[in-house]
Design a protein around this nucleic acid. Structure first.
Lengths: 108, 108
DNA sequence: TGAGTATATGACTATATAGTTATATATGTG
DNA sequence: CACATATATAACTATATAGTCATATACTCA
């Protein structure tokens, strides 16, 4: 949250973006795209998710600006739009690691 | 997302945390706590949300590790657990600003 | 102890959405 | 053109959850 207070409208937009990242299947898709550009078919294979399901998730991730895409012939290639997804997830992972350490210490 | 690939289980935990931040009401609560420690009553007043509703949101935020709390007498004081919420939201805000600039440019 | 206040919790409803199935829309190839 | 393949979309179902109302719990004080 920045220095300035945020309007209700801004909070709504932020919430919407976080929601895009709040589903395991979508994170799995993004995780696949870490390796680089992939077609929908490749994502299907990598994740084991259903075709229609993946397609919808990709539409949402694209609408949220987390992935870019290009069409080439019959295929659509998706890729991470920028490094923010990685940064966001790293931040969350850091939290989880700390948490795990604390829990471990409690039982030690 | 960190350098190493993430397990399905880890992705689930990360998604869970993002979900905690994916509701406007909860962001509004966190936004209130930016100013410092607040009681539930103060949060009610600041946000205009219902009592039971706020209480449940606070339980969730606490379970997710985003807020800490202490009881003093009949009141419970909540506060941001650390700076990560601010960092996460700043990142999202940055994205939205860029997006807004691009949109503006398109219509210029 | 009884009344009052602050917070938490349970039950319920309404809404959003993940996943699936079936179908539509390209695009490429013989 | 007919057909195959890749992706997108529509309709539907099942599940999760935000919000609300009613109630429970916990603390304070007279």
């Amino acid at each position: 949250m920045p220095r300035k207070p945020l309007s209700t409208e801004q909070l709504g937009l932020i919430a919407e973006r976080f929601k895009a990242l709040s589903e395991p299947s979508r994170l799995e898709i993004l995780n696949t795209l870490r390796e680089g550009e992939r077609t929908v078919s490749e994502i299907l294979e990598a994740t084991g998710l259903g075709q229609a399901n993946v397609s919808k998730h990709l539409q949402l991730l694209h609408a949220s600006g987390f992935v870019d895409r290009r069409k080439d012939g019959v295929s659509t290639y998706y890729r991470l739009a920028d490094g923010d997804v990685l940064r966001l997830c790293e931040l969350m992972c850091g939290r989880l690691e700390v948490e795990a350490r604390v829990k471990k210490k409690l039982f030690a």
